[in-house]
Design a binder for these strands. Sequence first.
DNA 1: CAGGATCCTACTAGATACTG
DNA 2: CAGTATCTAGTAGGATCCTG
Lengths: 121, 121
Amino acid sequence: MDDGEIPPAEMCSLREVLDLVGDKWAIRVLVHLGDEPRRFSELERALEGVSRRMLSLTLRGLERNGLVTRTVYPEVPPRVEYTMTPHAGELDAPLHALSAWAAKHRTQVAAAREAYDLANA
Amino acid sequence: MDDGEIPPAEMCSLREVLDLVGDKWAIRVLVHLGDEPRRFSELERALEGVSRRMLSLTLRGLERNGLVTRTVYPEVPPRVEYTMTPHAGELDAPLHALSAWAAKHRTQVAAAREAYDLANA
DNA sequence: CAGGATCCTACTAGATACTG
DNA sequence: CAGTATCTAGTAGGATCCTG
């Protein structure tokens, strides 16, 4: 038995990451944060389709898990800036690897889907 | 502006992968499949907590997207075996990278969460 | 053995309105 | 500006029963 596969011990790690950034908006938020601080309304405009509520919840989750820093400036009108933490920055490489996989296999996946749907019409 | 971050073009790739394996059971199924063919009941026992329904739906989804092959042996009682496709096999490395990140940052994430919860008690 | 069909519930997320 | 609160529709998922 060759053992190139993922041992059960890593499973929980995998689930942990997905619980952190697997939902609909978390990754988009992180990607759009990049290394520049962004304001709430900037993100709201950039992430087309996100509701205020979901953006708020997503940011709170990311902040809670230490992936995003929230800074409030005591001005009028209020200004709040969100920044990626170094932890989140290190997620960049793994995410690249994932998206590379997707790019490479996109057509095959699409073809498989079409074939499947055709067969089960 | 240095540009180590993920360009928007990769965003959709990322979402695609997550749509493929981001749900509760897909990755666990893939991991447990490894390179050995597995039967439905094997998976059902191995993935503690999965319902028949969800295992069935998950497998169908993976099959539809070309990540899993389903083979029916015309025997009595019936035997069905599931196998990872090569495409899915190549997902291994990216997933490793992700779980490595989780392993490395687990304690910090946990600490961040505790701190956050404490602050917002 | 390997599921499909059905029912029912609990959480998710959108829309809208209001506040510091 | 940067959110929170409330209400509601849609969906994911568990339990149960049935079939080739």
